[in-house]
Design a protein around this nucleic acid. Structure first.
Lengths: 173, 173
DNA sequence: ACCTGAACACCGTTCAAGT
DNA sequence: ACCTGAACACCGTTCAAGT
């Protein structure tokens, strides 16, 4: 039951992020929440970058778990949007915050991307187009870029239709 | 030839943004570049938000100008990507920074969106799907989310093909 | 091994004061 | 009308010092 102090720091950071947003995740605040001063955190964590990378890893794993089991293009798209809207701060963290690939465990990125590639029938270009589409629609929605009252569901439906038509050509396997 | 001090502040902010990135645009640095202390800026500008909004307006106008004259879906998509890659900091400013619609001159957003709507044949849902697609691909590219060596051109081509097939149905007008 | 206070080099912003 | 210095409430991070 002894959770390492490092894990505790990341746990608190995740709670703070989801509850109050990225600007609440400061070293001083984290220390306060853990009963220590900010400089003490550096005994458990190399710096703030370390914390952000750890949260990005959790986010990628959460996204991969949410998409596990989906197969059709429509299922993947719906699951992608659903997870992003359920965890907007974590989504923004993997989408907008610099990603330090060197510190990422191998396979984490691929695991999150696998369902997309599957729905694209193994076509990497189509998978990336699909990723761009899903990310773009989610990002614009989270950023409040669509005018109030915009029918975002309809935009998704139209987009999925267009891409489904594209994958409807017979392919072997 | 007497440019107002307000305009000068925005001009310097734009140069700093494009040359050194968003983190270089600080009130102290802006003052230094203009030969005054940071507090003096508040005589010409209500605050940093004011500066950011002014830059967003310029960015939206620049984007609209870059897309003016495009009509086909392929032209709009190419122009959208070209402008974003030519002005990545300005693009990020309108895509990722909060947009205070109340301070935006009316029509600025619509002008930037018009070419998209035109290429979608007036279908607002398709226009938004197209916007999501273009924004998503550009955003992922600017954020360095595609692996090194990824064929981003091919992803765009695949995406444009899928949407072109969707708009290929005969329509009146 | 773990935590502290003091410090450094930064932020955006306010405000009384000068000219 | 315009600019100033000092201050306030913040940042991430370093480091000598304590236990």
């Amino acid at each position: 039951m002894k959770t390492s102090r490092h894990t505790e720091v990341i746990d608190v950071a995740e709670m703070l992020l989801e509850a109050e947003g990225l600007e609440a995740v400061t070293m001083r605040r984290l220390g306060q929440e853990l009963g220590m001063r900010a400089p003490s955190l550096y005994k458990h964590v190399t710096g703030k970058d370390d914390i952000m990378t750890a949260l990005q890893i959790r986010a990628l794993q959460g996204q991969a778990a949410a998409l596990a089991g989906t197969s059709t293009l429509s299922e993947v798209a719906t699951g992608y949007r659903r997870w992003a809207l359920a965890h907007p701060r974590l989504y923004e963290l993997i989408a907008r915050h610099p990603l330090d690939r060197a510190r990422l465990p191998p396979g984490v990125e691929a695991a999150a991307a696998a369902p997309l590639l599957g729905a694209a029938g193994g076509d990497i270009d189509l998978a990336r187009a699909l990723w761009g589409l899903g990310h773009g629609l989610v990002d614009l929605e989270l950023a409040g870029r669509f005018p109030p009252g915009a029918n975002i569901d309809a935009a998704w439906a139209t987009a999925i239709d267009a891409f489904t038509a594209c994958t409807a050509v017979p392919r072997s396997g």
